[in-house]
Design a binder for these strands. Structure first.
Length: 588
DNA sequence: GCCGTTTTCGGCCCGACTGTTTTCAGTCG
């Protein structure tokens, strides 16, 4: 089969999501729509490229759960032609711009279809005009209030857009939590949702509260300083929107169903669907109020106080929130193979940081003091190389001077080691920014792409693979270059990079900067499947920069990483053994 | 459109809230 170069899993998933949107708009069978969305998620999360499976005569796409004959065929067509006739037909029937109308809160496929059919409204501007001319309120199922809500929603759809990065959401989560704890009658409070699952970006916050004073708790919540207003309020649930656009939901539940409610509000949605399906198989029903045994029309409460109880009711151990994405967690839980996820305290050192020699704000000594205060055994100083002129990157002479200084410090230090390192630039034209004889003197070299990020997939992949084949490079730093909400990852064939890393006994960085977090969770799991050690690094530019490591660890947990999978959980001695393995490989 | 050790046909998670309605559809998570 001819394979089209750029059809990667993410693109296939995008196509299936688009088909799902278009089908939903056409009022197709909702389960058919779900099959496409499900397929999109499974493919996006899959650790290997679909193309690799297609190219292997011994394997079939239909062996992937959720991919049947139909989806398999469409994946094949996409990979061999780059397009899909079915998608083209759908797009001919529905102008793609109507999908933007779905971004308005409260507008779903049914309402959008009605607007398009009756008023030929296909863009946000056309919809605004129709509302202002009071045409919308004349439609069946619409009225004046809906019209006003749409107008407000259009403004919102245009201003707020991006999901917030986890660390940004965390600061709101903490302040709302503190605000609520001032309220009497709160027995328990937990922030659930994708926040609790540690996703790299957060769309909204979900608070779960145990209290018998429901009205008081809701009044307090509505009174949050940054609230721009209450969107909805019922007997158990209240939703507010903050001035920055972030939506925050709160539910108040009795203590007896806290565990069931926590499972429900932690999600993911797809995880909950699988969980409830397992309950159904056992004659049970799971909802946010508990686990119930169904006897005809009667239901008997059997569990729900804790999450453990809920999972136990379907014969499973408790599953950590970070794994609840309907990926492998059920299979692992069933077979007793849930990984013991890495924890922040497992880290013994940090292998990527900068000093005042380049663009850091702290001196070498200050970084060492901060690392020791944190309880680390070692750090690597990895200032930029000369190509990074903006950061006053180091040439060979300045680097050797820094290393001399490190030698001097190391002689004085007990129970602590500074590795002589560098973050060497992978040049636009290929090759590294420092000569091999210089790199050979380093204890630790990370290589990274800063320039030429708009190059083709082939060019960037070759630059990175070549760097991995250099005998002195130990790891690739921030391997996709993404900046959440600011810069897309550059085009890189990660599968090829992982193969090169595996073949050369090299490592891959998970950059803990909350705006970077690359490798992302899926890529990180893929790297693990290649047996590549992951390095969780702070990329600190100041003495208080190490705190970001918690974000990196959270993401590593989402990838299912254990202490063993992460290189810098090792003692210095064991880390050096790992480094030596790469050197031996290079020498052969 | 996917799936199957009670099934190759007939299922497919479950409830809150709103706005439109006189009992419910649509949206959301």
């Amino acid at each position: 089969m001819l394979i089209v170069g750029n059809m990667n899993n993410a693109r296939i998933a995008e196509v299936f999501d688009l088909i799902a949107d278009l089908l939903e708009f056409q009022d197709a069978n909702p389960f058919r729509v779900r099959a496409y969305r499900n397929g999109a998620r499974i493919i996006r999360d899959f650790s290997e490229p679909m193309q690799a499976i297609l190219a292997d005569p011994d394997r079939k796409l239909t062996d992937i759960p959720g991919v049947g004959k139909d989806l398999a065929e469409k994946i094949g067509t996409l990979c061999s032609t780059g397009g899909l006739p079915m998608l083209e037909e759908l797009q001919a029937q529905v102008p793609q711009s109507v999908l933007t109308l779905l971004r308005i809160p409260g507008m779903g496929p049914k309402k959008v279809a009605m607007l398009y059919k009756e008023l030929h409204v296909a863009t946000l501007d056309q919809l605004r005009d129709a509302c202002q001319q009071q045409k919308v309120r004349k439609l069946k199922g619409f009225a004046a209030k809906t019209e006003e809500a749409i107008l407000a929603g259009i403004a919102l759809a245009q201003t707020s857009g991006d999901r917030m990065c986890w660390a940004g959401a965390d600061s709101y989560a903490q302040s709302i939590r503190a605000h609520m704890l001032d309220c009497k009658g709160i027995e328990k409070i937990e922030v659930a949702g994708s926040y609790r699952r540690g996703k790299d970006t957060i769309g909204d916050l979900d608070l779960l509260v145990v209290s018998s004073k429901v009205e008081d708790v809701m009044d307090r919540f509505a009174d949050f300083t940054d609230s721009a207003g209450v969107i909805a309020r019922g007997p158990t649930k209240i939703t507010i929107r903050l001035v920055n656009g972030l939506q925050v939901d709160m539910r108040v539940v009795p203590a007896g169903c806290f565990g069931a409610a926590l499972v429900y509000f932690t999600g993911s949605k797809d995880h909950n669907i699988v969980l409830r399906g397992l309950a159904k198989d056992r004659g049970l029903k799971i909802n946010e109020y508990g686990v119930f045994r169904v006897h005809g029309s009667k239901e008997e409460f059997i569990a729900g106080r804790t999450e453990e109880e809920v999972y136990k009711s379907v014969d499973l151990p408790w599953i950590p929130p970070e794994l609840r994405e309907a990926r492998h967690e059920f299979e692992w839980a069933r077979s007793g193979k849930l990984p013991k996820l890495i924890e922040l305290d497992d880290l013994c050192g940090d292998l990527h940081m900068h000093t005042t020699a380049t663009d850091g704000k702290a001196t070498l000594e200050e970084m060492v003091a901060a690392a020791r205060a944190r309880g680390f055994e070692y750090i690597a100083i990895t200032d930029h190389s000369k190509r990074v002129t903006m950061a006053r990157g180091l040439d060979a002479a300045r680097l050797r001077q820094q290393w001399k200084e490190i030698d001097r410090l190391n002689r004085k230090l007990k129970d602590f080691r500074i590795l002589k390192g560098v973050e060497v630039d992978i040049l636009e034209k290929g090759g590294l920014d420092l000569q091999d004889d210089v790199l050979a003197e380093a204890d630790w070299v990370v290589a990274s792409v800063h320039y030429g990020q708009n190059q083709s997939r082939e060019q960037i992949t070759k630059r990175v693979v070549d760097a991995l084949e250099n005998p002195h490079v130990r790891a690739i730093a921030h391997p996709t270059g993404r900046l959440i909400n600011r810069r897309k990852p550059y085009e890189i064939d990660l599968d090829a990079a992982f193969k090169a890393a595996r073949d050369n006994n090299k490592m891959m960085e998970l950059n803990a900067n909350p705006a970077r977090l690359d490798l992302d969770d899926v890529a990180c799991a893929a790297a693990k499947s290649f047996g590549i050690p992951i390095v969780i690094s702070s990329d600190s530019h100041s003495a208080d920069g190490f705190h970001v490591l918690r974000y990196g660890v959270l993401q590593a947990r989402r990838a299912g990483l254990t202490k063993k999978d992460v290189a810098n959980t090792r003692s210095l001695e064991k880390l050096n053994e790992l480094i030596a393995k790469g050197r031996q490989k290079a020498a052969r």
